[in-house]
Measured scan of single mutants.
Amino acid sequence: RSRTTFTAEQLEELEKAFERTHYPDIYTREELAQRTKLTEARVQVWFSNRRARWRK
């Protein structure tokens, strides 16, 4: 699998969701996946990476 490139629109959606919760449940992730046209797995990994960046 090659590296996922996120569009500005996708990042906006993901960042907005991250402001609400750092640990979205499966329903939230599924909804985000549909809205951003990404897979739920990509959304999950993005949140994991985003939390790592947030901790630094």
Score class of each variant (00 low, 15 high):
1 R>M: 15
1 R>G: 11
1 R>W: 12
1 R>K: 06
1 R>T: 15
2 S>E: 11
2 S>G: 09
2 S>A: 11
2 S>V: 06
2 S>M: 13
2 S>Q: 08
2 S>L: 11
2 S>W: 04
2 S>N: 14
3 R>G: 14
3 R>S: 13
3 R>N: 12
3 R>M: 14
3 R>C: 12
3 R>F: 14
4 T>W: 05
4 T>V: 11
4 T>H: 06
4 T>G: 06
4 T>Q: 05
4 T>E: 12
4 T>S: 12
4 T>C: 07
4 T>D: 07
4 T>L: 09
4 T>I: 09
4 T>P: 09
5 T>G: 11
5 T>I: 10
5 T>V: 13
5 T>L: 09
5 T>W: 09
6 F>E: 12
6 F>M: 08
6 F>N: 06
6 F>D: 04
6 F>T: 03
6 F>G: 03
6 F>Q: 02
6 F>H: 04
7 T>M: 07
7 T>H: 03
7 T>F: 07
7 T>Q: 13
7 T>D: 06
8 A>R: 12
8 A>G: 08
8 A>L: 10
8 A>N: 12
8 A>T: 11
9 E>A: 10
9 E>F: 08
9 E>S: 08
9 E>D: 06
9 E>M: 12
10 Q>S: 01
10 Q>I: 15
10 Q>D: 03
10 Q>E: 01
11 L>S: 14
11 L>I: 04
11 L>F: 06
11 L>R: 08
12 E>W: 08
12 E>G: 10
12 E>C: 05
12 E>S: 11
12 E>Q: 13
13 E>P: 03
13 E>M: 10
14 L>K: 00
14 L>S: 01
14 L>N: 01
14 L>H: 03
15 E>A: 04
15 E>M: 03
15 E>C: 00
15 E>Q: 05
16 K>D: 08
16 K>S: 08
16 K>H: 12
16 K>P: 03
16 K>C: 11
16 K>Q: 07
17 A>C: 15
17 A>H: 00
17 A>Q: 15
18 F>H: 00
18 F>Y: 07
18 F>M: 02
18 F>A: 01
18 F>W: 14
18 F>K: 01
19 E>Q: 14
19 E>N: 13
19 E>H: 09
19 E>W: 03
19 E>I: 05
19 E>M: 11
19 E>F: 06
19 E>L: 09
19 E>K: 14
20 R>E: 12
20 R>Q: 15
20 R>S: 10
20 R>D: 07
20 R>L: 11
20 R>G: 09
21 T>Q: 09
21 T>M: 04
21 T>I: 05
21 T>F: 05
21 T>E: 14
22 H>F: 00
22 H>Q: 14
22 H>K: 15
22 H>E: 06
22 H>A: 11
22 H>L: 04
22 H>D: 03
23 Y>R: 04
23 Y>K: 03
23 Y>M: 05
23 Y>N: 11
23 Y>A: 08
23 Y>I: 03
23 Y>D: 11
24 P>T: 01
24 P>Y: 02
24 P>I: 04
24 P>S: 01
24 P>G: 01
24 P>L: 06
25 D>E: 04
25 D>T: 05
25 D>W: 03
25 D>Y: 03
25 D>G: 05
26 I>W: 12
26 I>S: 14
26 I>Q: 05
26 I>K: 13
26 I>H: 11
26 I>A: 15
26 I>M: 14
26 I>C: 11
26 I>R: 09
26 I>F: 13
26 I>V: 14
26 I>E: 14
27 Y>G: 12
27 Y>R: 14
27 Y>T: 13
27 Y>H: 10
27 Y>L: 13
27 Y>C: 11
27 Y>P: 13
28 T>S: 07
28 T>C: 10
28 T>L: 14
28 T>R: 07
29 R>Q: 10
29 R>E: 00
29 R>C: 10
29 R>T: 09
29 R>K: 02
29 R>N: 04
29 R>D: 00
29 R>Y: 05
30 E>K: 10
30 E>C: 14
30 E>S: 11
30 E>N: 14
30 E>F: 08
30 E>H: 11
30 E>P: 02
30 E>R: 13
30 E>L: 15
31 E>G: 06
31 E>V: 08
31 E>M: 05
31 E>S: 11
31 E>P: 00
31 E>K: 11
31 E>T: 15
31 E>C: 10
31 E>R: 10
31 E>F: 13
31 E>N: 06
32 L>F: 04
32 L>D: 02
32 L>G: 00
32 L>M: 06
32 L>V: 08
32 L>W: 01
32 L>E: 00
33 A>N: 02
33 A>L: 03
33 A>R: 00
33 A>Q: 05
33 A>S: 03
34 Q>G: 09
34 Q>W: 08
34 Q>E: 09
34 Q>A: 08
34 Q>V: 11
34 Q>H: 14
35 R>W: 01
35 R>N: 06
35 R>L: 10
35 R>A: 07
35 R>I: 07
35 R>F: 06
35 R>Y: 05
35 R>E: 04
35 R>V: 10
36 T>S: 02
36 T>E: 01
36 T>L: 14
36 T>G: 01
36 T>I: 12
36 T>V: 12
36 T>Q: 00
37 K>I: 04
37 K>T: 05
37 K>E: 06
37 K>Y: 06
37 K>F: 07
37 K>W: 05
37 K>H: 10
37 K>G: 14
38 L>P: 01
38 L>K: 00
38 L>Y: 04
38 L>I: 07
38 L>H: 05
38 L>A: 05
39 T>I: 02
39 T>K: 03
39 T>E: 07
39 T>Y: 00
39 T>W: 00
39 T>A: 03
39 T>S: 13
40 E>Y: 04
40 E>L: 08
40 E>Q: 04
40 E>C: 08
40 E>H: 15
41 A>N: 11
41 A>D: 15
41 A>F: 05
41 A>H: 05
42 R>W: 11
42 R>Q: 14
42 R>N: 15
42 R>E: 15
42 R>Y: 09
43 V>E: 02
43 V>H: 00
43 V>F: 01
43 V>L: 06
43 V>M: 03
43 V>I: 06
43 V>N: 04
44 Q>G: 12
44 Q>C: 13
44 Q>F: 06
44 Q>K: 12
44 Q>V: 08
44 Q>T: 13
44 Q>E: 12
45 V>H: 07
45 V>I: 11
45 V>K: 09
45 V>E: 14
45 V>C: 09
46 W>V: 00
46 W>L: 01
46 W>P: 02
46 W>S: 02
46 W>I: 02
46 W>C: 04
46 W>T: 01
47 F>P: 03
47 F>I: 02
47 F>G: 02
47 F>D: 00
47 F>V: 01
48 S>G: 08
48 S>L: 10
48 S>F: 10
48 S>I: 04
48 S>N: 10
48 S>Q: 07
49 N>E: 12
49 N>L: 10
49 N>Q: 13
49 N>W: 13
49 N>I: 06
49 N>M: 07
50 R>Q: 13
50 R>C: 02
50 R>G: 03
50 R>F: 04
50 R>A: 11
50 R>S: 02
50 R>V: 00
51 R>G: 03
51 R>V: 08
51 R>I: 05
51 R>F: 04
52 A>N: 15
52 A>L: 06
52 A>P: 00
52 A>R: 08
52 A>W: 09
52 A>Y: 07
52 A>M: 09
52 A>I: 11
53 R>T: 12
53 R>P: 04
53 R>F: 11
53 R>C: 10
53 R>G: 12
53 R>D: 14
53 R>I: 15
53 R>V: 12
53 R>W: 07
54 W>G: 13
54 W>C: 14
54 W>L: 14
54 W>H: 15
54 W>I: 14
54 W>A: 10
55 R>S: 11
55 R>A: 08
55 R>I: 09
55 R>Y: 10
56 K>A: 12
56 K>N: 11
